[in-house]
Simulated assay, not measured.
Amino acid sequence: MTKSELINILAEKFQEIPHDDTEMAVNVILDAMTKTLGNHDRIEIRGFGSFVVKYKLARNARNPKTGEAVYVEEKAAPHFKAGIELKQRVNKSMEPTIKLAA
């Protein structure tokens, strides 16, 4: 799902709210999440999951194409961990597929 698809789904579900306001609400939420992770803080949405920033230390690596040694700088990357309820819902939605595959 893309951001525009999410906005369209929400606008359709809540027709009393103008489409522009729905788009603004989604953008405000995503901006707040981005800013929180940018401050290296944790985000937890109960029943859905949590977002944290994980750090990768600087290291020497190899270019797989040439085999040449390359220095990779330290970096931070966002990481998502699904909550139990989200995992259960995803697994439940896959039950018919799992039964057919077995």
Results as ranks from 00 to 15, higher is better:
Tyr55Pro: 09
Lys54Gln: 13
Lys87His: 06
Ala101Cys: 13
Arg59Met: 01
Ile98Lys: 11
Ala32Phe: 04
Pro18Ile: 03
Asn27Met: 00
Ala101Gly: 13
Arg59Val: 00
Asn8His: 12
Ser93Thr: 15
Lys87Tyr: 03
Lys3Glu: 06
Ile84Lys: 15
Lys99Asp: 11
Ala101Ser: 15
Gly49Ile: 04
Asn60Leu: 13
Asn91Asp: 09
His40Thr: 14
Lys3Val: 03
Lys3Thr: 03
Gly83Arg: 04
Pro78Ile: 05
Glu85Ala: 13
Ala61Pro: 01
Lys35Ala: 09
Ile84Val: 15
Asn91Ile: 05
Leu30Ile: 00
Ala11Thr: 03
Asp41Ala: 03
Lys65Ile: 10
Lys92Met: 12
Pro78Trp: 02
Asp21Leu: 09
Glu5Thr: 12
Asp21Lys: 09
Lys75Cys: 10
Tyr71Phe: 13
Phe51Pro: 07
Glu95Met: 08
Arg62Trp: 06
Gly38Cys: 05
Gln15Cys: 07
Lys99Thr: 14
Leu10Met: 09
Val28Trp: 02
Asn63Lys: 02
Ala58Trp: 03
Asp21Pro: 04
Ala69Trp: 10
Met24Val: 05
Leu37Pro: 03
Gly49Tyr: 01
Lys54Arg: 14
Ile9Ser: 15
Pro18Lys: 00
Ser50Gln: 13
Ala102His: 14
Pro64Asn: 06
Gly49Glu: 05
Ile45Ala: 07
Thr66His: 11
Lys13Ala: 03
Val72Ala: 03
Val90Ile: 11
Thr22Asn: 00
Ala58Ser: 06
Val26Gln: 00
Met33Asn: 03
Ala69Asn: 12
Leu6Asn: 05
Glu12Cys: 06
Asn27Trp: 01
Thr2Asn: 15
Ala61Leu: 02
Ala77Glu: 14
Ala32Leu: 04
Tyr71Ala: 14
Asn63Pro: 00
Pro96Tyr: 06
Val70Pro: 01
Ala101Arg: 14
Asp21Met: 07
Glu12Pro: 02
Glu12Gly: 14
Phe48Cys: 06
Ala69Lys: 13
Ala102Arg: 14
Glu68Gly: 10
Met24Gly: 07
Val52Gln: 13
Arg42Cys: 11
Ser4Trp: 09
Pro96Cys: 04
Glu5Gln: 14
Pro64Val: 07
Ser50Leu: 12
Ser4Phe: 10
Val72Gly: 04
Ser93Glu: 15
Ala76Leu: 05
Tyr71Asn: 11
Thr97Met: 14
Ile43Asn: 04
Leu100Cys: 12
Leu86His: 09
Ser93Arg: 15
Glu85Thr: 11
Leu30Thr: 00
His79Lys: 12
Ser4Arg: 15
Asn60His: 10
Asp21Tyr: 08
Ala58Tyr: 05
Glu12Lys: 11
Ile45Trp: 06
Asp31Leu: 03
Ile98Trp: 04
Asn8Gln: 15
Ala76Pro: 02
Phe80Asp: 00
Ile98Gly: 10
Asn39Gly: 07
Ile43Trp: 01
Glu85Leu: 09
Glu95Gly: 04
Glu44His: 13
Ile9Tyr: 15
Ala11Cys: 05
Val53Tyr: 08
Leu37Met: 01
Thr66Phe: 08
Ala11Ile: 05
Arg62Phe: 07
Val90Arg: 02
Gly47Leu: 08
Ile17His: 00
Asn91Ser: 05
